[in-house]
Amino acid sequence: MPGHKPWLPALATDDKSSRLYMKPPAFGYEAPTSIEQATALLSMHDGDARIIAGGQSLVPMLNFRLLVPSVLVDINRIAGLDEIRDDGKGGLTIGALVRHFQLEASELVAARFPILTEAVRHIAHLAIRNRGTIGGSLSHADPAAELPMMVQLLNGALTIAGPDGTRTVAARDFFDGALTTVLDDAEIVTEIALPALPAGAGWGFKEVARRAGDFAMAAAAVTLTQKDTLIEEARVAVMGVHDQAIRVPGAEAMLQGAVADNGTITAAIAAVREAVDPDDDLHATAEFRRHLIGVLVGRAIHDAWHRAAVAHT
């Protein structure tokens, strides 16, 4: 996805003219029609092939020649990966090729996970959302992208196909720093399972970016359930303020079982500011980001509390 990326290496330049390359290097192209074919191709090229799905992050990197793969394996022709399905237990199963706009427009998503609908509205622009996929966003693992944060918040699990079969990885174990995941070279994310939220859960999502569609400076997502006058289950996730999107167990611990008053929220905010390690960049200093994420978490907790249905013992 377009945007300033301080963690990327310096741009490749043309030795003769110092002009920036803006066309991709030559590569081979494969468009398999099954997951088995795709993983076999990836396996055959032994780390030198790249998967292309929506391409909204990959193609800029190719145009800049930050990546020079020998082959692109285009998974868009694999049938059955573009569906959002009811899991029959109050949750959803989302195919890896589901586009951001599909998520945004899905009534099923809005009914089950309104916080996900809200989060997707913050992903880039319509033209990017029309192409970008959930599997691609998760595999790209941008620290300032919404979906890696959301699947962690929602206790998601990723189905990953490889040459030797499939495995399931919890979203919280999937990310391994900026633009890094536990995926092996020949593996593909095929599906994301999102289990039902607890009954009556309220939610809050807050993001700050310079303009609509820009990469976030910071964003926070919170869900919580209310029992009598206390917070019961609480989840807090943040992005843009660490080398990857993270859950913040320290803040969750401050909220769970506590009265939702200013003291509790202040303690949760302090735990978030303690847990994150933001970078300085063109858009904001680390200090500003640390301050900002606290403010956003506080507001998200507030919204989540007010949206939660009160359960009584």
């Binding site: 192209y29 391409g55 909204q56 193609v59 145009n63 285009d74 029309n130």
Partner: peptide
């Protein structure tokens, strides 16, 4: 592309 706006610089012709 198929009725949806897309960036023609982020899509390959083969796609």
């Amino acid at each position: 592309m198929n009725g949806n706006s897309v960036r023609a610089c982020l899509t390959f012709a083969v796609q």
